[in-house]
Design a protein around this nucleic acid. Sequence first.
DNA 1: TTTATATTTAACCAGATGGTTGAATGATAA
DNA 2: TTATCATTCAACCATCTGGTTAAATATAAA
Lengths: 113, 113
Amino acid sequence: MVNHNKDQLNEIFHALSDPTRREIIHSMHQKEKTVSELAQPFDMSLAAISKHIKVLERAKLIERSVNGRTHLCSLNTESLSKATEWLQFYEKFWSNRFDLLEKELLEAKKKEH
Amino acid sequence: MVNHNKDQLNEIFHALSDPTRREIIHSMHQKEKTVSELAQPFDMSLAAISKHIKVLERAKLIERSVNGRTHLCSLNTESLSKATEWLQFYEKFWSNRFDLLEKELLEAKKKEH
DNA sequence: TTTATATTTAACCAGATGGTTGAATGATAA
DNA sequence: TTATCATTCAACCATCTGGTTAAATATAAA
């Protein structure tokens, strides 16, 4: 139970670490796409793209609706949000650190006078 | 030139895809830590942690300042920001999509009357 | 100088990853 | 029915990954 989140983050970040998969995500950011539409821009076998899509699917970054012999893929931003949430925790922490630093600097200036 | 960004995203997301590395990031989110401090919570050799740290360093997620025989590691949030920026583009696009849908729905309701 | 400490490096290994090709599946079109 | 089309599956392969242990390096302490 506890590790679901951790495992999903592993899968999300791993899925995003491949440029082909990021391009796949990009090419469906406005509209759902079939597997062959997604494969078209790449100089790579359909089987390879099929695997990439499965990796994205396991990370729940995309969803697939089977329609006859064609599969329509669409983005699922929930997983994207999970990743950004993780990241922003540390970004915020850091900017807070700088805010604090700035305050201390101001305090120091006040004391000068 | 063009691919620097792409390659760095590969490295950032790859670095983040490992739970040990995410914990390392977590354990230095308030304060810089030495390599052995970072290694302490893990049931793993120092050599392994040393490798993890190098992966984080290559992704520019952390910086290291060598001080005598100890190395101090600190977070570098610039890389974190690069990752969130990439992610948020797609998140935004999607929420815009829903906003649009909502507007259309409202228009449709108006026309009903 | 000798010894201890902090860290990296090198060599190795099992398993994962990202690609290939060729065959299988399953739905549509002729 | 028979082709054809969209997609996956299986077997294979080279390379990468995440770990190990043992030795090397470099600084600090006795």
